[in-house]
Structures are given as C-alpha cells and as structure tokens.
Amino acid sequence: MPKDGTMLNGIQYFIEKTPIMLLDEVMGYYIVFQNEKDLRDIEITAKKLFEKKGLYAKYNFSDIIHVSPAMKECIKTARTVSLTDHTVLITGESGTGKELLAQSIHNYSQRNKMPFVAINCAALPESLLESELFGYESGSFTGAKKSGKLGLFEQANGGTILLDEIGDISPHLQSRLLRVLQERQIMRIGSDRMINIDTRIIAATNRDLVSEVDKGNFRRDLYYRLNVITLRIEPLRNRREDILPLISNFLGPKYNQISDSDKKLLSSYNWPGNVRELENAAIHYNTLSAFPGCLTNPPHSSSEAGKASNSTDILSVESSILKIIMENTQLYHGIGRMQLNTQLKFMGIHIGDSSLRNVLQDLQEKGLITKGKGRSGTKITEVGIRKITEK
C-alpha cells in the first residue's frame, strides 16, 4: 500500500508517483490517486478470502508458551528476522513447534495481511508435490484440470510459504527449488513461461542437513541458499523449565489437581516426542485423569531421547519393527515412518523419530528392508521375511 497520502474534499488518498523516462532523462511523472477506504476494503476482502481458503497463519509469538532462556533467545532472534524478507531455516526435532514459529514470523512481518501457505514435503509423492508447489497448465498430464492449476508458490505471492520437512524432497525437486530461491521465478508444469513471484520462503526440517549434504542426499548449493538465517528450537529435554508452564496451559483448571510427584515425573521425563507428546499426555490426563504409562516407565538412559521406553532391548525393537513392516508390505507400497511409529506406540514401544530413522537405516544396510520415497514407503525383503520366520 502506498505510504504517502493527502486529503482532497474530505477524502484521504494515497499517492503513487512514478517517473516517465526517455533515454535516462525524466520527462515527467504520472500520479495515481487511490482512495484509502477502497484499499482498506480490498484488504479486508482479501483477508476473508485467505481465511476461507485456509491460507493464513493462526499463531503469534504471544502464543508460544515458554520461560526458558533458550526459547527466549530463539523468539528474540525470530522477531528481528521477521522484519526482513530473508529466507529462514528452522531446525528442531519432531514435535518442537517449528510451524508455530513459522506462523509467528509471518504474522509479525510486513507480509501479515497476505497469504501464509504451509506444505509438508514428506507427506506427498514427488510428482504430486511438484504439481502442488509449481502448478500446471491445461492438459499437462492425464487427469489435469482443463483450466490448469495455480501452484502454492503463486498462491503465496506477496506472503510466506513454509516448506516443512524440506530434507525429504527428491534431487529433482531440490534443483527446481534452487532456481526459485536464486531467481524468485517459477515455471508451471507443461509451460515454457517463467513467472515472477514475491514470496518469502521459510523451510523447516528435523534432519541434520549438514550430514545429509555430506552423504550426498541434499544439494550443497541448495543448503547454502536456505541457510541464510537459521533458527534452532531446542528439544523439550534441553529446556525443562518450559514443561510445567506448557502442561498448565494444556490442562487448564485440571492442572491444580496434579500432585507434586506428578509434576516431578513430568519434569524428569525426556519427552522424545517433545511438545506434541506433552500435549498428548495432557489429553490423556484430561480424559482418564491419569498420565500415560510411558511416563512411569521411562527409558533406561535419561541422557538420550528416542530410545525404547520399556525394558525391550534394541534387538526386540528391531524385530517388532520388521514384523510391522512385513504386515504392511504390499505389491506397490509399504508403510510410512509416521504410521510405523504410531503402531509401535500402540505396542508400548516409544521411540523418537531420529532413532527410528537410524534403526531403519541399519535394517536397510543389512538387506532386511527397502526404503522408498513418498507413498512407496518401507517394505520388507525376502531376507527380512526369512529372519522373522526363522525365530
């Protein structure tokens, strides 16, 4: 919106003044008067449309409950970064609240009246993710809409896009994303025309991207394009001061019913699932007036998160994982990591996302499973089946 304004006949106008150039010489100016009320009405209409489509950020920095120095420093930096248009990379374990921080950055920025679009890059197969991000022209592929489709980068134009789980995208999409970051241009699928975009990019990941770069899984040049400003959210076990304020918020009036021993238990547990797991524990308490059993049977080693939270050793955990994978292996697809972790929790095995990745990587190196991208998921091999049936 133009900044300069003037009053004419009792009406406030914003003024845009643009020079008319001829051979590097200013020949004159053209001036556009815009009624302030009309512009405000357009803003309100656009905001309602964004909210109707879900293209808006719900949370602000004031919604982030914290008392720990680590989170205070993180939010202080995030507030400063919000006032720029720089690309931001948010890192942290699963469940720490990376999208909450991204939404807060958007709402604190000058783009807060424009769309906020978030997409989980690990939740969609490569082909679908590409069409969602970049859009496509009419007739680009079988099943494409006749009118084509606007991609998320275009839908977020003027606002912010959050690329969650950025570490899981394929090499092909990494190269396409690199151009977006370099040139601020996108090309729809089936088109030969570049489209300029004005979209702030926030990326988030629970992976160690430096390690992924060293392994050759993530482009080095893309990493440096993303890593302009990094915000790391510490896991809950490293900021235990935040546990009781968070559980108090989740429980509401019921917080006064929990005993001192329960508070001590909550504060000493490692929370491998971080704030998300803490919120689930609060839901469990609100429903059943008791905390989950995993809190009373914590992992043997309190120095590491993500280990099995019962007496089961790593071999039996691997065996349980193999059995779940075998039960979910079909001809064209297997089981996703999130679904696998959910089934493990139903069995009473609580394992962090990073630890599960390590176990799956070890099983793949042993030739017991194969890990695919997107919907293909993780499938068991003949060797893996023999290992289970031999027991």
Rank of each mutant, 00 (worst) to 15 (best):
T91D: 01
M21S: 08
G143H: 13
G92P: 08
K263T: 02
V383I: 15
L173K: 01
I31S: 07
R220I: 13
I243P: 07
L368P: 07
L39D: 09
F153V: 00
I11K: 12
D353V: 09
Y285N: 04
K263H: 07
Q257S: 06
A144F: 08
V117R: 03
R276D: 05
Q364M: 10
I258Q: 02
S94W: 08
Y224D: 05
A57G: 03
Q185T: 11
K391E: 15
N341L: 11
T80G: 11
M114Y: 14
P19G: 06
N227L: 09
S309F: 06
G216Q: 10
F141P: 06
I169P: 04
E130V: 09
Q364W: 01
L133F: 12
Q330I: 02
S311G: 11
L100M: 02
R232T: 14
L265Y: 04
S94I: 08
V32F: 11
I42L: 13
D192R: 06
H333I: 13
G190H: 03
I202Q: 08
D192T: 06
H284S: 15
G139E: 03
I369F: 00
A308T: 00
I161T: 02
N217I: 10
S303G: 06
G336H: 02
Y29N: 06
L177Y: 06
Q12C: 05
D313L: 10
T96L: 14
L236M: 06
R111I: 05
G95W: 02
H172S: 13
S354D: 07
D192S: 08
L231F: 08
L128A: 10
P125Y: 13
I233W: 03
V88L: 05
H172C: 07
S248E: 15
G158P: 00
Y255R: 01
N107A: 08
L265F: 08
I258R: 04
T230N: 13
V117Q: 04
K149S: 15
T342H: 09
K149W: 11
F50V: 13
R179H: 12
E137G: 02
C294I: 15
P272F: 10
I351R: 05
G159D: 00
Q343E: 12
L22Q: 10
A144Y: 12
K149T: 14
